[in-house]
């Protein structure tokens, strides 16, 4: 089985107190903030590694990011991926979700056939949750989002469990496919010290725009249809109010408050 995991390097949440917004470029200033694997992508990678342990095959990690993101891909290799490809070029810089999905798709086309592409449902920095669906569209495969479980039986359609608001749907699906996962799908493994040493033997391939076939003009800031109108940190208003009493009293006070506010 050939599984590709799309991984986005994001600013490590442990250092978010140091994050700044650049009002001119309307982007996050990531310089000096250590990167890490987007948390849900870590779950996607864990799902891929578990599947490889069950079914055999290989796990490839693909990312579109600046070249200094290599330590993040090294971490993905240390978690157990077999190979990593970093799509990195000035031409790709400033891509919106469409541009990102497009660049990932041309990179994946160069990698050849696959059974499964796994993504995290969304990232903790952008949070658009669009890339997996766009990627599936570019690659012409089915897509299921919010996946919290995957059942693979050889010779049968796969079963993907997709979370919805009040339950889940079970989707029968045949490979190749693009799935994006939610955190309840698994608990990602720790990187062990032995894994860190093994990862040093696994190279990271860096592909520029010249290494892939860009037949559409969607890569980079110029090719991205999204125009950022503004970017700002919301003002903290500190409106929390603690409701006291036993659970019954609290429920009554809350219902009364909601009623007065016109909600019920």
């Amino acid at each position: 089985m050939r599984i590709i995991v799309c991984v986005k390097p994001v600013p490590d949440p442990k250092h978010w107190n140091r994050l700044q917004l650049d009002p001119k470029t309307r982007t996050l200033v990531r310089k000096g903030i250590p990167g890490t694997i987007n948390p849900l992508d870590r779950h996607a990678l864990e799902a891929a590694l578990t599947l490889r342990e069950q079914e055999g095959g290989e796990v490839l990690v693909v990312s579109m990011a600046p070249e200094d993101s290599q330590p993040v891909l090294k971490e993905a290799l240390a978690m157990g991926a077999d190979r990593a490809v970093l799509l990195s070029d000035r031409v790709f810089a400033g891509s919106d979700t469409l541009g990102t999905a497009y660049v990932l798709s041309v990179g994946i086309e160069r990698l050849g056939e696959f059974d499964l592409i796994l993504c995290g449902d969304e990232t903790i920095d952008g949070g658009t949750a669009q890339v997996s669906a766009q990627l599936a569209e570019f690659l012409g495969t089915p897509n299921v989002m919010h996946v919290s479980g995957l059942e693979v039986s050889p010779g049968k359609p796969w079963l993907a469990r997709s979370q919805i608001e009040h339950g889940y749907t079970l989707v029968e699906i045949e490979p190749p496919m693009v799935l994006s996962v939610v955190k309840t799908i698994n608990t990602p493994r720790y990187v062990t010290l032995m894994n860190i040493l093994e990862a040093e033997q696994k190279p990271i391939e860096v592909w520029s725009a010249n290494d892939v076939t860009l037949s559409e003009p969607w890569a980079g800031l110029a090719g991205s249809p999204t125009q950022m109108a503004d970017l700002f940190a919301p003002e903290r208003k500190g409106m929390a109010e603690m409701i006291t009493g036993d659970p019954k009293e609290q429920a009554a006070k809350l219902a009364d408050r909601l009623h007065r506010l016109g909600f019920c």
């Binding site: 890490t36 290599q70 330590p71 971490e75 990187v191 062990t192 860190i196």
Partner: peptide, 15 residues
């Protein structure tokens, strides 16, 4: 080195 940085990160996560 990147090795030691990753080592620090992974042990920190674990701890």
């Amino acid at each position: 080195s990147d090795r030691e940085e990753l080592l620090r990160k992974t042990v920190r996560d674990y701890a």
